[in-house]
Computed example of a mutant assay.
Amino acid sequence: MVSESYKELLATTASICTVLQFLAGILVCKKYIINGTTGDTSGFSFVACLLSCSFWLRYGQLIGDSFVIWVNITGTFLQLSYIAVYTKYCTQKSLILKQFITSVIFITVVYFYSIINQDKAEVTSQIGLLSCALTILFFASPLTMLAHVIREKNADSLPFPVIIASFVVSCQWFAYGILLNDPFIQMPNFLGCILSAFQLSLFTIYPAKKLIDSHII
């Protein structure tokens, strides 16, 4: 039997690492502010993360898990801040506003449904499945980049620190999901572990060209 103190320690470290991962958006927004524009970058990743955090927040409320609740309250607040900065500096404000309004309507409808439905077990399962699906889609988003890396046999374009952070966070939440015996927390984070590990392996399979060139010289 796993002690509650160990479970809380794992959840605390996972929450801290997740919040630190969320804070990476500050660097992105800082670049927007310095340049005075978002350039060609898309703000959809902020919207997608807002959706994910919002639904995990509701799931945390339904299962009564304070760690899941607070980490996603923080994530939701940060994503709203990032969307505000992106909207201020982007050239196509109508697009990001449409995405944001659509996501808010979707979140509102799901929250309202989860409140009026009296079958808590059914609602918890449905919200958990939705949260799980959104997280899997989020983890699957780099697959197009992986195809490019494999085709070019060059891993230079992959963000190594981000992948390491993703791997650590996924492993922590996967372990926490096992302790809770919660398949909705286990499944997306297990896939996150696998995908992150595969991306890390590409740095060994396709060493950075700069490193190769330095050995040749």
Rank of each mutant, 00 (worst) to 15 (best):
F184M: 11
G177P: 00
V162P: 00
A165R: 10
L200G: 02
Q199C: 14
E152H: 08
K120N: 07
F100T: 14
K153N: 02
L180I: 12
V109S: 02
F174G: 01
T74E: 03
W70N: 05
A165S: 15
I163R: 04
A147I: 15
Y32T: 01
N181E: 09
N154W: 09
G60S: 03
A133R: 01
F106K: 01
I69V: 13
I205A: 07
F106L: 13
L191A: 09
S131A: 13
D40K: 06
T74R: 00
E122Q: 07
S66F: 12
S54Q: 08
L200M: 09
C17G: 11
A165E: 13
P188F: 08
D119F: 11
P183S: 10
K153T: 03
P207F: 12
T76M: 08
V169D: 01
I136R: 00
Y176R: 05
S166D: 12
Y86V: 12
I164P: 01
L191P: 03
Y82M: 07
A48H: 10
E152T: 13
S157L: 14
L130N: 04
I34Y: 08
T74W: 10
F138N: 02
K7D: 05
V123I: 14
V110K: 02
I205Y: 07
I116C: 04
L50R: 04
S45C: 12
